[in-house]
Design a protein around this nucleic acid. Structure first.
Lengths: 224, 224
DNA sequence: TCCGGAATCCCCCAAATGGGTGAGAGTCAG
DNA sequence: CTGACTCTCACCCATTTGGGGGATTCCGGA
């Protein structure tokens, strides 16, 4: 929504700027969307061509407008950002998506990058950084801001959890006992305990409570 | 939303609108701040007179500009929103602060209202609601949006935790054992277990893991 | 083909946890 | 003053949990 902000003069004798960068903004918070639109439209050489408020909408809109850049929130109702990125990149492998998230949880960052995001920004970053990242990614860059890259390093330090371990962790966070987890996964309680042992080791905690908190803290398991 | 429609015309023969509502915007996310500024300035009869990016700054700025309304985020680095509201209202008991938060955690809502916030909005609400709440609070209203009020009701359903129970819960979330909690609080382990019993009952959980998750889920204890 | 990782299961055992019950001291409001 | 609440501590006992081994099968990569 380009209101009073863009006097950017798209037709003015633009000196060195190539064609305008066309951006799709995806965020479920109206005021944030408004801010991003204002931010982008106030930058020379870029403009918002569409908005979406969730993953599904983002996928539809992408097909319609074929933006140069998608600026996407990660946590949204319904389809999350990561799945939306995946879906977009199946149809459009050259899509350039930048995640803009509130959280610097290492699992979130990892999931986003795995899904094909070109960069990962935090909402507490200055608008200049956001603008310059949009330009950079449009030029073909794919670098992460220092603090985000550091988080990703932290994650790589931590040993990867296996699928089964993640299953167990999921039930654990939901307050299930070993016995219940066992019957839910159709395995013996001993196997559950076996998974827990490696889980505790990998997460560097002593007990299930610590594991639950770490899982939430790092975004390995999401609440609700 | 009222963007291209209202070229607000502050000097135009304003019919019934009284003096302009002067708003202070407090949020640590630059794009969100930008959006709120755009949102408010696009509304007839209100304008942003100052911005702040954390609690301390908000308190200073309030003294300077004496805004009619403060629109404040709750979770910010350093001093949080609740403490800032408290501090502002000590010096200015008639200050009208509206909280604008990402989270609808019942403890957050409760803390905000306790601190003296006049209303509590969520960032996923439409901008019309935000604007109308600003007007309402400026007129002296102090009502909560339906979903927020419901959360507060949920909280009242849950039995209040005592101070000591909160202490224990805090250590528990930090992964401490009963023995460690006991020595940290200088009480016997039996007393810790006694507190845990009532804690489990009040939170409707079976064990410490459930208690930790519930504490985080409801915002009773904040992670880091 | 052989190795390693993953998942499964088993045993033993000590420690931690949770449930039930009771009870004394302090505070605070009606 | 009395009742309600909180905090404190104690004891008993069953269950759960967690730590230490070890074993099997399966699968995919070197």
């Amino acid at each position: 929504m380009s209101s009073e902000t863009d006097f950017i003069a798209p037709t003015m004798g633009a000196p060195k700027t190539g064609p305008v960068i066309r951006v799709l903004v995806v965020d479920d918070h109206p005021p944030m969307r408004m801010g991003l639109v204002a931010l982008i439209n106030s930058q020379p050489g870029m403009e918002v061509v569409a908005e979406a408020s969730d993953g599904e909408e983002a996928i539809e809109v992408y097909d319609d407008v074929r933006p140069d850049i998608v600026l996407m929130d990660l946590r949204m109702p319904g389809m999350g950002g990561a799945e939306a990125i995946l879906a977009i990149r199946i149809k459009h492998p050259d899509a350039r998506v930048i995640v803009l998230s509130t959280y610097d949880l290492d699992e979130d960052i990892h999931r986003a990058i795995q899904s094909g995001a070109k960069s990962y920004l935090l909402k507490d970053m200055p608008i200049e950084d956001i603008a310059s990242t949009i330009r950079g990614v449009h030029e073909g860059d794919a670098s992460l801001p220092r603090p985000v890259a550091e988080r990703l390093t932290e994650r790589s330090q931590r040993q990867q959890l296996t699928e089964r371990e993640r299953d167990v962790l999921g039930f654990l966070v939901r307050g299930r006992s070993n016995k219940e987890i066992a019957s839910s996964l159709c395995i013996s309680e001993d196997t559950v305990k076996s998974h827990l042992k490696t889980l505790f080791f990998k997460l560097k905690v002593r007990d299930r409570t610590g594991a639950a908190v770490e899982a939430i803290r790092h975004g390995i398991v999401h609440l609700k």
